[in-house]
Design a protein around this nucleic acid. Sequence first.
DNA 1: CTGAAAGCGCTTACAG
DNA 2: CTGAAAGCGCTTACAG
Lengths: 321, 321
Amino acid sequence: MTGTARRPTIVDVARAASVSKSLVSAALRGEPGVSAASRSRILAAADELGYRSNGWAQRLVSGRSSLVGVLLTDLRNAYQTDIVNGIEDAAAAAGFDVVLSHGRRDRELLRERLASLTALGVDAVIAVTGHLDADDLAALADRVPMVVVGRPASVPDAAGWIRNDDETGARLAVAHLQERGHDRIAYVHGSSRPASIARRDAYRALVTEAREYDVHDDGIARLLDAVAAGGPTAAFAANDRIAAQIVAEAVDRGIRLPHDLAVVGYDNTELADLIRPGLTSVDQPRGEMGAAAMAQALGLLDGGVPEREVASPTLVVRGSS
Amino acid sequence: MTGTARRPTIVDVARAASVSKSLVSAALRGEPGVSAASRSRILAAADELGYRSNGWAQRLVSGRSSLVGVLLTDLRNAYQTDIVNGIEDAAAAAGFDVVLSHGRRDRELLRERLASLTALGVDAVIAVTGHLDADDLAALADRVPMVVVGRPASVPDAAGWIRNDDETGARLAVAHLQERGHDRIAYVHGSSRPASIARRDAYRALVTEAREYDVHDDGIARLLDAVAAGGPTAAFAANDRIAAQIVAEAVDRGIRLPHDLAVVGYDNTELADLIRPGLTSVDQPRGEMGAAAMAQALGLLDGGVPEREVASPTLVVRGSS
DNA sequence: CTGAAAGCGCTTACAG
DNA sequence: CTGAAAGCGCTTACAG
C-alpha cells in the first residue's frame, strides 16, 4: 500500500531536477537554449518519475489540438477504409493524430457525432459521408475547418469538397457493357442520393431505353424476372453491395453469369474480388482522395480557401461482364 | 471586415449578463442554486454570443474526459463493426463519447495508436484486437483502465478481457460437418494466433486424421487439389474471409459446393450472406461482447477488478454445408 | 542559459 | 443566491 500515486507533473520533475518548471517545459519540448547538463538531468528525472505530459493542459494553452476528426457513415462500408488510410498517412506526415467517429448511416446520429467531434476540440473535421447535407454541416463549417469526401445533397460554401466523378464512372461501366454487345442494360440502385442520381443520369444518356430498378422495391427480383423473360442482358449497379446481391440471387436462380446476365458494380471493394464470378467494378482513387482531403484540411487551417476537387475513376474488369 | 472574432469564453458571457463567471459556470452546468432570473439572463447571453465551452479546459480541471478510446485492428475486418456498435451504445448510455483508432493489422502501428489514445487522455481504452500481446498492453494497462476484446497472445493482469469461446465454436463447426456425414474434414488457417490455434486444437480433438492447410503456404490450392483427388470432403476455415476464398477458388475449378466440398467459416460476417453458396459460419455475440467490454471499462473506472469473460458462439447454417 | 510571472478557460471550495 | 480566490498543468513572453 503506497497510496494512490498522483500522476507526476512538470512541477515534480522541476523539483527532482532542481530547476524551474519553465526550464523543464523547454527541455521536454526540445527547445534549443537549454544546457546539455540541465537537459539530461531533466530528462532523467522525468523518466525516473514516469512523467507524461498532460494533453488537456497543452491543448488549452496552445489552442491547437493537432487532431483531425474523421466522421464515417458506416464502418460496414468497405469503400471508406482506403480513404481513411489516405487521410491517416497524410495526417501523420503533418504531425496530426486522427480520431474516427461513426454514424451508422443514421443522419441523426451522424449529426451528433459531428457535434461531439467539434466539442472534442479537433482542429479540423473530414466528413466521409453522403448522408448529411449542407444544413447539417453548415453550422460547424463556420466554426471549424471542414472538408467533405463523397457526395452529399449539398456542401456548405465554407467547406472543402472532394468526390469522384460519378458521371464518368457510370459512363465507363455502361460503355464497357455496350462494347461487350449488350444493348438492353438495366440500372439498379438503392437510394436517391446524389451519387446514385448522377450515375443514373449518365446511364440514361447512354442507353436507348432506361430500365431502372430499386432494390427497396423488390428490384432485384423484378430484374431477374425480366432477365428470364428475355429482357435486360446486363445490369449496372449503383454500388458493389447491390451488385453482389444481384449476383447472389442470379446464382440462386440458375442464371448464368456473365452469359445470361452481365453485372458491373461501383467502388471496387474487397467484395468484388471475393464473390464469383468476380465483379467488374468502377474504382475510385480512394487513397488519393483521402490524402487530398487531409491536404485541404491543412490548407484551410493555414487560412486557405475551400476547394472543390473531382477525382477520376477507372474500370476494373472481372468475370461478371 | 470585423476582424478575427476571438471565441467567446465564460468571462465574456459573465460580462454580458452582468454576473460573475462562477455563476455562469454554475448556470451552464445546470446546477441547482441559481435564481431563475440569472439563469435565463446567462443562457440568453451565452446563446447570443455563440458561446461553446472549451473541452480542454473542462477536462483539465475536472480530470475526466468522459472519453473511451477504441483501438481497432483493421477497419476492413467486418467482424468488428457490431462490437463497436455494442460499445457505442453502452458508452452513450453511460454518458461517454467513443473515439476510434485504427491500426491496420500492423503491430507497430497498433502500438503507436494505443499510445496516442492514452496521450489524448481517454478515461479508458478498449482494444479490439488479437494482434497485440501483453508486452504491448501492459505498460498502458497500469496507467489507464483497459479491456481487451478478442484473443491476443496474452492479456496483462490489470486489463479486463472478453472473448468468444473458440473451442466451442470449432466444435460446433466440426460436429455439424460430421453430422452431415463428412469424415474427412480439413482445417484451413491463415495465422498461428491464439484464436486460430484454439480452433485448430478443438478440431484435432474431433477428427480421426488432421488435414491442415495454411493459406500463406498455397494452402487453398493444395486443399482443392486434394479434394479433386478424393481427399477431404469438407473444410473448416479459421474465419469467413478464408472460407470465402476457398469457395471462390472452388467455384473457379468447377468443384460443386456443398456436394463435392462443404465449407464452414467463422465470424458470420456480412460476407457469409453475400457469397454463393451462402456460407455456414460460427457466430460470436458481437453486440453483447462490445457492451460487456464497455461495462467492464466502467467497472474498472469505478475501482473494480479486471474480469475474464467468455461468450458463447452459435452456428448459423447456410448453403455451403 | 535560467527563473518568476502571467495566463489559457474552466471548476471547486469557501465566504458572504 | 452570488462573488472572489485559488488552482488544474502547461506555455509564453520577459527579465536577468
